[in-house]
Measured scan of single mutants.
Amino acid sequence: DVEPGKFYKGVVTRIEKYGASINLNEQVRGLLRPRDMISLRLENLNVGDEIIVQAIDVRPEKREIDFKYIP
């Protein structure tokens, strides 16, 4: 289970102007929005990149997770 405040290694699977889709595994994925990137710009991400993200909002009833990137 993903817990708010914990850090996870994820893989960038899609990049859109509203954010990047991050997969932690086949069943768990979430969104990294541009506003939640401290020192990383969306255009510097590539599909397949592995990054460390922090879960900031977990809504299991909607199967949604928001991530934050902290270098």
Score class of each variant (00 low, 15 high):
Glu3Met: 14
Tyr8Gly: 00
Ile52Thr: 10
Asp57Ser: 15
Ile65Thr: 03
Tyr69Phe: 11
Val11Ser: 03
Asp36Thr: 04
Asp1Gly: 13
Gly10Gln: 01
Ile65Tyr: 09
Gly30Glu: 02
Asn25Gln: 05
Glu16His: 15
Met37Lys: 03
Ile56Glu: 02
Glu50Gln: 11
Lys9Asp: 01
Lys17Cys: 13
Arg59Gly: 06
Arg59Asn: 09
Asp66Glu: 09
Ile52Gly: 01
Glu26Asn: 14
Pro34Ile: 12
Asp1Arg: 13
Pro4Phe: 09
Arg14Phe: 09
Lys9Val: 11
Pro34His: 07
Arg63Val: 07
Gly19Asp: 04
Asp66Ser: 14
Ser39Gly: 15
Asp1Pro: 11
Arg14Ser: 12
Arg41Cys: 12
Tyr69Glu: 06
Met37Asn: 07
Leu32Cys: 08
Glu64Asp: 06
Pro71Cys: 15
Tyr8Asp: 00
Val47Arg: 03
Glu61Gly: 13
Glu50Ile: 15
Phe67Cys: 05
Val2His: 04
Val2Ser: 02
Ser21Leu: 15
Pro60Lys: 11
Leu42Asp: 01
Glu50Trp: 15
Leu31Cys: 14
Gly30Pro: 06
Val28Lys: 03
Gly48Gln: 01
Pro34Tyr: 08
Phe67Ile: 04
Tyr8Leu: 03
Ile65Phe: 07
Ile15Glu: 00
Ala55Val: 15
Arg14Gln: 11
Phe7Lys: 04
Asn44Val: 07
Val28Ile: 14
Ser21Trp: 15
Val47Ala: 02
Gly10Met: 07
Leu24Ser: 01
Asn25Trp: 11
Tyr69Ser: 03
Pro71Ala: 11
Leu42Thr: 03
Tyr18Phe: 13
Asp49Asn: 03
Ile51Pro: 00
Asn44Gly: 08
Ile65Arg: 02
Val28Cys: 10
Val12Gln: 00
Tyr69Lys: 02
Arg14His: 11
Ile51Lys: 00
Glu26Cys: 13
Leu45Gln: 00
Lys17Tyr: 13
Asn46Trp: 09
Ile70His: 08
Ile38Gln: 11
Tyr18Glu: 13
Gly5Tyr: 07
Asp36Gly: 05
Lys6Val: 08
Val58Tyr: 10
Pro71Val: 07
Asn25Ile: 06
Pro60Ser: 09
Arg63Ile: 07
Arg59Leu: 05
Glu26Met: 12
Gly30Asn: 02
Arg33Met: 04
Glu50Gly: 06
Gln27Thr: 14
Arg41Val: 11
Val28Arg: 04
Ile38Leu: 09
Pro71Asn: 07
Val2Thr: 03
Leu42Phe: 07
Asn23Trp: 14
Gln54Thr: 06
Ala20Trp: 07
Lys6Tyr: 07
Lys6Cys: 14
Tyr8Ala: 00
Phe67Asn: 03
Phe67Ala: 02
Lys68Met: 13
Arg41Leu: 13
Leu42Val: 06
Leu45Ser: 00
Ile22Leu: 03
Val2Ile: 15
Gly10Thr: 02
Ile38Ser: 09
Gly30Met: 06
Val53Ile: 08
Glu43Cys: 13
Leu32Asn: 01
Tyr8Met: 01
Glu16Gly: 15
Glu61Cys: 08
Asn44Ala: 11
Glu64Val: 09
Phe67Gln: 02
Ala20Val: 14
Arg63Phe: 13
Glu64Ser: 08
Tyr8Asn: 00
Asn23Gly: 08
Asn23Glu: 15
Thr13Ile: 09
Arg33Lys: 08
Pro71His: 08
Glu50Ala: 10
Lys68Tyr: 07
Gly30His: 03
Asp49Ser: 04
Arg33Ile: 06
Leu24Pro: 01
Ile51Asp: 00
Asp49Tyr: 05
Val53Arg: 00
Gly48Tyr: 03
Phe7Pro: 04
Arg29Val: 14
Arg59Thr: 06
Gly19Leu: 05
Ala55Lys: 00
Val28Asp: 05
Arg33Cys: 06
Leu45Arg: 00
Gly19Lys: 04
Phe67Val: 04
Val11Leu: 09
Lys62Pro: 06
Ile52Phe: 09
Gly10Trp: 08
Asp49Val: 06
Leu24Gly: 01
Glu43Ile: 08
Asp49Ile: 06
Ile56Cys: 08
Pro60Gln: 10
Phe7Cys: 13
Met37Asp: 05
Asp49Glu: 06
Glu64Gly: 08
Ser39Ile: 09
Asn23Asp: 12
Val47His: 01
Phe7Ala: 04
Arg35Ser: 11
Pro4Ala: 12
Ile51Arg: 00
Asp66Gly: 09
Asn46Ala: 14
Arg35Pro: 04
Val28Met: 08
Met37Pro: 02
Arg35Trp: 07
Lys6Trp: 06
Ile38Trp: 06
Val53Tyr: 00
Gly5Lys: 04
Pro4Gln: 11
Asn44Arg: 06
Glu43Asp: 11
Asp36Arg: 04
Leu32Ile: 05
Pro34Arg: 10
Glu3Ser: 10
Leu31Gln: 05
Arg41Pro: 05
Asp57Tyr: 13
Pro60Trp: 12
Arg41Tyr: 09
Glu26Ala: 14
Ser39Trp: 14
Ile15Pro: 00
Asp57Lys: 15
Arg29Phe: 12
Asp66Val: 12
Pro4Tyr: 08
Leu42Ile: 11
Ala55Glu: 02
Pro71Arg: 09
Leu42Gly: 03
Val58Glu: 03
Glu50Tyr: 14
Ser21Phe: 15
Ile70Met: 11
Gln54Val: 12
Asp57Leu: 13
Gly10Ala: 10
Asn23Val: 14
Tyr8Val: 00
Asn23Ile: 12
Gln27Gly: 13
Tyr18Arg: 12
Tyr69Cys: 06
Val47Ile: 13
Asp36Pro: 04
Pro60Leu: 10
Ala55Pro: 03
Arg14Val: 08
Ile15Gly: 00
Phe7Val: 05
Pro34Lys: 09
Asp66Ala: 11
Glu61Phe: 07
Val2Cys: 07
Val47Tyr: 03
Ile38Gly: 15
Leu40Tyr: 04
Asp1Asn: 14
Asp57Ile: 12
Met37Cys: 09
Glu64Pro: 04
Asn25Pro: 03
Ala55Asn: 00
Ile51Glu: 00
Leu31Gly: 01
Leu40Met: 09
Leu24Gln: 01
Ile52Asn: 04
Asp66Trp: 14
Lys17Ala: 14
Pro34Thr: 09
Gly5Asp: 04
Ile38Ala: 10
Tyr18Ala: 10
Arg35Tyr: 07
Val12Phe: 02
Ile38Pro: 06
Arg14Ala: 13
Ala55Leu: 07
Pro71Asp: 08
Arg59Gln: 06
Arg29Ser: 15
Lys62Thr: 13
Lys62Trp: 08
Val47Trp: 03
Gly5Cys: 13
Glu26Leu: 11
Arg33Gly: 03
Pro4Leu: 14
Val58Pro: 04
Glu43Asn: 08
Tyr8Lys: 00
Asp1Glu: 12
Arg35Cys: 09
Phe7Glu: 02
Tyr8Pro: 00
Val11Met: 09
Glu16Val: 08
Glu16Pro: 01
Ile15Asn: 01
Gly19Thr: 06
Pro34Gly: 08
Lys62Glu: 10
Arg29Met: 14
Ile38Phe: 09
Met37Ala: 06
Ser21Arg: 14
Pro34Asn: 06
Val53Gly: 00
Val53Pro: 00
Arg33Leu: 05
Lys6Asn: 07
Val12Pro: 01
Ile38Met: 11
Lys68Asn: 04
Ile22Lys: 01
Asn44Tyr: 10
Glu3His: 12
Ala20Cys: 07
Arg59Glu: 04
Val28His: 08
Glu61Ser: 11
Val2Asn: 02
Gln27Ala: 12
Phe7Trp: 11
Glu64Gln: 12
Glu61Arg: 07
Asp1Cys: 15
Gly10Lys: 00
Gly48Arg: 01
Pro4Ser: 10
Leu31Ile: 13
Glu16Cys: 14
Gln54Asp: 00
Arg35Gly: 10
Ser21Cys: 15
Ile56Gly: 06
Ile70Lys: 05
Leu24Met: 04
Ile70Ala: 10
Leu42Asn: 02
Gln54Gly: 03
Arg33Ala: 05
Tyr8His: 00
Arg63Trp: 11
Arg41Phe: 09
